[in-house]
């Protein structure tokens, strides 16, 4: 089930508090911020939490999703800091954005690309996913901007980062979405890439805002 980002973050906090720190319950004041009431209602409706005046308890039904929310968050942190080499502060901020965009498919790929990490950059454990249990060929994965890729290089779209909504809309209507296979056909004087069976030409400015995961065999 999909929740609002607020709700997902509440789940994370609850899970960390109860499962990792072993608190039996969590104090309500942690969630006093404005706008959180609606998210809490969402979770209550789904039967994920119970709440009285002071305390909130994460119920059995919500644990699975809460665990995966934490996993997403910490994977995103690893990704931002280890792969993108962002500093802690920007890394944290980008991770908070990115974690909500992870689809199961993308999550698996990122986890694989990071080598199924056990801990996040802050040293907290990352709950294991199904993919971590399977052993397979480990590949080093490098994240590149589309504009930096060479002709013939392949990969999968990680995400798009642009402040310009119209640019984002254009990329999306051409089929550029996280997780999609992408390959570069030529990269000068403009970038022409293939996604699905469509070839698209974009200028360097647009190509810069697409981040692609490329594989490099070890």
């Amino acid at each position: 089930m999909k929740f609002s980002h607020e709700a997902e973050e509440i789940l994370e906090t609850l899970w960390v508090s109860q499962e990792e720190k072993g608190n039996p319950e969590t104090h309500c004041r942690l969630f006093n911020e404005e706008g959180r009431a609606e998210a809490l209602k969402e979770l209550k409706l789904a039967g994920y939490i119970s709440q009285n005046k002071e305390k909130i308890i994460l119920l059995e039904k919500g644990k699975e999703d809460a665990r995966s929310a934490v996993r997403h968050h910490r994977l995103a942190e690893c990704f931002m800091m280890n792969v993108l080499k962002l500093d802690k502060e920007t890394g944290n901020m980008s991770a908070c954005e990115f974690e909500h965009l992870l689809t199961p498919q993308l999550e698996e790929r990122i986890c694989g690309m990071l080598g199924h990490p056990k801990t996040c950059p802050h040293g907290n454990p990352i709950p294991q996913g199904k993919c971590c249990l399977k052993t397979g060929l480990q590949k080093e994965i490098v994240l590149k901007r589309l504009s930096e890729m060479k002709a013939g290089q392949k990969g999968r779209v990680a995400y798009m980062k642009t402040a310009d909504k119209r640019k984002l809309q254009k990329l999306m209507i051409m089929g550029v979405m996280p997780g999609m296979k992408i390959s570069v056909i030529v990269n000068a004087p403009s970038c022409v890439f293939q996604i699905g069976n469509t070839q698209v030409a974009v200028d360097a400015e647009m190509a810069k805002s697409v981040f692609v995961m490329t594989e490099k065999k070890r």
Partner: peptide, 8 residues
């Protein structure tokens, strides 16, 4: 901004 589909 330049973006264009390239048909076969």
């Amino acid at each position: 901004i330049f973006y264009m589909e390239v048909p076969p």
